[in-house]
């Protein structure tokens, strides 16, 4: 039996009926067409599906869409405002924090929560905060620099 849900995604309210087993990431990608959130594994490991739910970074592959009923979600598509990049997005661009780009949305979302909680993280704190996000391209070197860039810019 399909269940009605109402979610706010990137400031817009959506109401849909979904199959209970539909994962939140599937809802975002297939129902709303927001394909900026990715699926990289089936074990809640890689973090490519990371979004913000009510301000907290969560793995949208390990949530049912029905569990997000009433929640406010922020995905990669909603981070830039009026065409202006968020400092984390800018940091990833300036510091070459991405290569293939597949892990990037999840990585940026995880970094977003980190900087909300800790405005000036050191390298160790950044690496620890990103432990739920795999990247196979960058060796994380420039991802760390990207987050540092963003922290500096936000604090300015």
């Amino acid at each position: 039996m399909e269940i009605p849900i109402k979610v706010t995604v990137n400031g817009e309210v959506y109401e849909h009926r979904v199959e209970p087993r539909m994962l939140l990431v599937t809802f975002l990608r297939e129902v709303l067409g927001l394909t900026g959130t990715h699926v990289g594994c089936d074990t809640s490991s890689c973090g490519a599906c990371t979004i913000l739910m009510d301000g907290k970074a969560v793995k949208s592959c390990t949530l049912l869409a029905v569990q997000a009923d009433g929640a406010e979600l922020l995905t990669m598509e909603g981070l830039a405002r009026n065409g202006e990049l968020h400092p984390i997005q800018e940091g990833f661009w300036r510091e070459h924090g991405l290569q293939c780009g597949f892990c990037t949305p999840g990585m940026i979302m995880a970094a977003y929560q980190l900087l909300e909680e800790n405005a000036s993280p050191d390298e160790k704190e950044i690496r620890r905060a990103l432990e739920g996000n795999y990247c196979r391209c960058t060796g994380y070197h420039n991802i760390v620099k990207s987050v540092q860039y963003a922290a500096k810019k936000i604090n300015r």
Partner: peptide
Amino acid sequence: IGDPQIRNM
């Protein structure tokens, strides 16, 4: 436990 996202949920 796990990672920050897992600790949130």
